[in-house]
Simulated scan of single mutants.
Amino acid sequence: MNNYIDIGINLTNRQFEGDIDDIIQDALDEEVLQMILTGTSVRNSQASAQLAKQYPDVLYSTAGIHPHDAKSMTNESIPALRKLLQMKQVVSVGECGLDFDRDFSPRPIQEKCYKAHLALATEVQKPLFLHERAAFSRFVSITKEHLPKLPQGVVHCFTGTLTEAKAYLDMGFYLGFTGAISDVKRFSHLKEVLTYVPLDKIMIETDAPFMLPKNVPTGSLKKYHERRNEPAFLPYVAGTIAQFKGISLDKVAEATTANAKQFFNLNVK
């Protein structure tokens, strides 16, 4: 029996409204025994923490402001996140970082918001759940300024180049991989990345309801939700990694679960 941990799901997304109990049970049935809800704004982080509280030792959450929402940050935001991070079910600072691909928030505001998260993580010493898209050079520059005092970090939903992966590994970070790795048309380069990245630096996530793995059988998709990703599909991410690295699924499950337990300081199940 393989046990899995999904380090990133958006369970407060409206696509899951009215479905949460079933989503969690379906995940448990597929041996996805623990899941971490991603906080993307103060309000969303609060909602995620409350939801995680209802499923102790199964659901956990992060607390942060996604770069898309950086423009929502006020003087009250960091104190509100700090309060959330005092809760035992809130295990990580983030999602935070830079996204220069869509620029939903102005870049200077994104940078200010990210720096505030780095300072907060240094203060509370809980690990970082990081987001970087089309902002590699600036992201690395800012992060390195804080690096000596930072706790551990994971660059989630990694789809970057091998050169970028090596840079993050050199900084001591983990890499989180989603169903994007099974998209051989759009992300064919990730096979080379995964072949290189050591297993002890890999974690897995669905980023549900987004990033549906291409290798999920059609019969497993629920009627009316043919494009919705779910934490129950996490084993398909692990299976792709096993295929790319030429190792057993058991090894991928064991390593990624151990990595996540240590990184997020989760209760052992």
Rank of each mutant, 00 (worst) to 15 (best):
N3R: 15
G8N: 12
G8I: 06
G8F: 11
G8D: 05
L11Y: 09
T12M: 09
N13A: 14
I20P: 04
L28S: 07
Q34C: 09
R43D: 11
Q46M: 07
A49N: 12
L51G: 03
V58A: 09
S61W: 08
G64N: 11
I65P: 01
P67C: 10
D69G: 10
I78E: 09
L81S: 08
L84D: 06
L85N: 02
V90P: 04
G97C: 03
D99M: 12
D101L: 13
I109W: 01
E111M: 05
C113T: 13
Q125K: 14
L128M: 12
F129T: 04
L130I: 05
H131F: 14
I142T: 10
K144L: 07
E145L: 07
L147D: 01
T161C: 01
T161W: 00
K166Q: 03
Y168E: 00
L169V: 02
L169T: 02
L175P: 03
G179H: 05
D183F: 03
R186P: 00
L190T: 02
K191V: 10
E192V: 07
L194G: 06
T195H: 11
M211G: 04
L212M: 15
K214Q: 14
N215M: 10
P217Q: 12
S220N: 14
K222S: 09
K223P: 00
Y224R: 13
R228H: 15
P231Q: 13
P231R: 15
A232N: 00
A242C: 06
Q243N: 13
K245V: 01
I247T: 08
N259R: 05
A260C: 04
Q262I: 01
F263L: 13
V268W: 02
V268G: 00
